[in-house]
Design a protein around this nucleic acid. Structure first.
Length: 402
DNA sequence: ACGTGTATGCCTTCCATCCC
DNA sequence: GGGATGGAAGGCATACACGT
C-alpha cells in the first residue's frame, strides 16, 4: 500500500488549533473515538487538498492522535518527550503559532472556507461552530431542550400516580414522543451518542398506573446464573432442595427443562467431559459452583419460556428458606393474608405485627414478603398491604402445608 | 509505543427440525 | 403441540497485526 502524503501546512494548522484548544487532561484521555478527533479526521478527509483515491487510513483518527502527540513533544508543559521523529514542518507550524492562538484560529477559518468541501452535520458541525464558522445558537437551544426534557420527565413521574389507567397511558405515550424527538435532535447535533438512545426506548413499554418503567430483563442465562449464585451465597438451599435439583424428573416437572438443573462434578477428573450429555453435547456451564462442600455444574439449556417456572421456584425458595420461620408459622401468616384478601379485609404492617405478636421480627418478615413479590405496599403506603402475587402465595401455602 | 482493528477459538444462546 | 436434538449463530476473551 502506498504511503500517505506528508501533512500539508493547512492540515497542521487545523491539528495545532485542536491541540491548543484543549487542556492537558483532555490530551491525556484522547482516543480514536474522541468526538473532536473524529471530527478533525472527517474534516481533513474532506479538504480539496486531500489526494484523490487516498487509502482508508488517510488522516484517520489514529493519525490525528499521533500528530497531536507530535505537538506534545514541543510543549513545555510536558516535562518529558512524547514522541521523537516529528516532522520538520510540525516544528515550524508549532513555532509560528503556538503562542498566537487567535491568529491561528483566523488562519484555520480561512483554510476551511477555501478548502472544506464536505458535509457539515453532527460532530463536524459542532467542531466548525467552535471555530466560529457558524453562529452558535445550538448552546442556547440545547438549554431550552434540556428544560423540556426535565419537565417531560416530571410529567411521566406524575402519570405513574394517575388513577385512570387510560389517562396514564395517554400521558406516558405523549411524553415518550416528546423525549424521542428531543433525543433524535441531540443525536443529530452530535450532543448525544447513538447508544444512549436506548434509555428512551424503555419508556415505550410502560404499562401505566402504579407500575415502574419496564427495564429490559437480563437474558435468561445470565438471570439464572446471577440469581442462583445469590441463593448459594445466602445459603438458602437445603439438602432436600439439592436432591430435587439433581433429579431429571423433578427438574422436568418444575422447570420444564430436559436436564437436571445441577450436576455433581468431580474436580479430580477433567471437567470437560462432565459437562456433556450422553451424546457428547455440552449442556452445563463449565464453571462449577460450590454448595455445601460439593461442586456442581449448572445446566445451561435455559430458554426464555422456562423463565416463568424458574422465577416461581426462585421466589418460593426465597420465602420458604429465606424467612427464618417454621413452615407451620409461615403457613399461618400466609393463610391469614389469603383469608383477609378473600373477605376484602385490608392488611397493614401495624395490624399484622399486632396479630402475630408472638413471632419475632414480624416487620422484617413482612419486608421479605414484599421483596419476594407476594405483598405490595399500595401506593407506597404501610397502612395498606395488598397481595401482589396471589398464585405465589397459594403455591407457598400448598408447599408449607403439613 | 500503544490504542484499535481483526482473526481465532472456545463457550453460550437460540433456532430449525425431528419425532413422539 | 411440545419436548428432544443437533447445530448455527452470537458473544466474548485473547492474541496478534497494523498504522504512524
Amino acid at each position: 500500500m502506498s504511503r500517505n502524503p506528508n501533512w500539508f501546512e493547512e492540515e497542521l494548522k487545523l491539528a495545532l488549533e485542536l491541540y491548543l484548544s484543549k487542556d492537558l487532561q483532555w490530551h491525556s484521555k484522547i482516543s480514536d473515538s474522541t468526538p473532536e478527533v473524529i471530527a478533525l479526521s472527517q474534516i481533513l478527509n474532506n479538504l480539496d487538498l486531500a489526494p484523490k483515491n487516498h487509502g482508508k487510513n488517510f488522516r484517520s483518527p489514529s493519525s490525528i492522535r499521533l500528530k497531536l502527540a507530535n505537538f506534545k513533544t514541543f510543549d513545555e508543559r510536558y516535562n518529558k518527550l512524547s514522541l521523537a521523529n516529528t516532522g520538520k514542518l510540525d516544528k515550524e507550524i508549532w513555532e509560528m503559532y503556538h503562542a498566537k492562538y487567535e491568529q491561528l484560529t483566523e488562519e484555520c477559518l480561512k483554510v476551511l472556507r477555501e478548502h472544506f468541501k464536505g458535509e457539515n452535520s453532527g460532530v463536524v458541525r459542532e467542531y466548525l461552530t467552535r471555530l466560529g464558522m457558524y453562529e452558535d445558537l445550538r448552546e442556547e437551544f440545547l438549554k431550552y431542550l434540556k428544560e423540556v426534557v426535565k419537565r417531560t420527565k416530571d410529567f411521566q413521574t406524575k402519570a405513574l400516580t394517575e388513577k385512570n389507567i387510560d389517562v396514564s397511558r395517554v400521558i406516558m405515550n405523549s411524553c415518550y414522543d416528546l423525549l424521542k424527538v428531543a433525543n433524535d435532535f441531540n443525536i443529530c447535533v452530535g450532543y448525544q451518542k447513538d447508544d444512549e438512545k436506548k434509555q428512551i426506548d424503555t419508556y415505550e413499554e410502560h404499562a401505566g398506573i402504579n407500575e415502574k418503567p419496564i427495564k429490559p430483563e437480563k437474558k435468561i442465562g445470565r438471570f439464572i446464573q446471577s440469581t442462583f449464585t445469590e441463593l448459594i451465597a445466602h445459603n438458602y438451599l437445603t439438602q432436600e432442595d439439592l436432591e430435587f435439583l439433581t433429579s431429571e424428573q423433578s427438574c422436568r416437572n418444575e422447570f420444564h427443562i430436559g436436564h437436571p438443573f445441577i450436576r455433581k462434578v468431580d474436580l479430580s477428573c477433567s471437567i470437560s467431559d462432565q459437562i456433556k450429555d450422553a451424546n457428547g453435547y455440552i449442556r452445563y456451564w463449565k464453571e462449577p459452583v460450590r454448595i455445601k462442600e460439593q461442586e456442581y455444574c449448572i445446566c445451561k439449556e435455559w430458554y426464555e419460556s422456562n423463565r416463568k417456572y424458574y422465577t416461581k421456584w426462585l421466589n418460593r425458595i426465597k420465602v420458604i428458606n429465606g424467612i427464618n420461620l417454621s413452615k407451620e408459622e409461615l403457613n399461618n401468616i400466609l393463610c391469614y393474608l389469603k383469608k383477609n384478601d378473600e373477605e376484602n379485609v385490608y392488611n397493614s404492617t401495624e395490624k399484622l405485627i399486632k396479630k402475630f405478636f408472638y413471632i419475632e421480627h414480624m416487620d422484617i418478615i413482612l419486608e421479605k414478603l414484599i421483596a419476594s413479590g407476594i405483598l405490595m405496599k399500595f401506593h407506597d403506603s404501610v397502612d395498606q398491604l395488598v397481595i401482589e402475587d396471589y398464585d405465589l402465595l397459594c403455591d407457598i401455602i400448598e408447599k408449607t402445608r403439613k
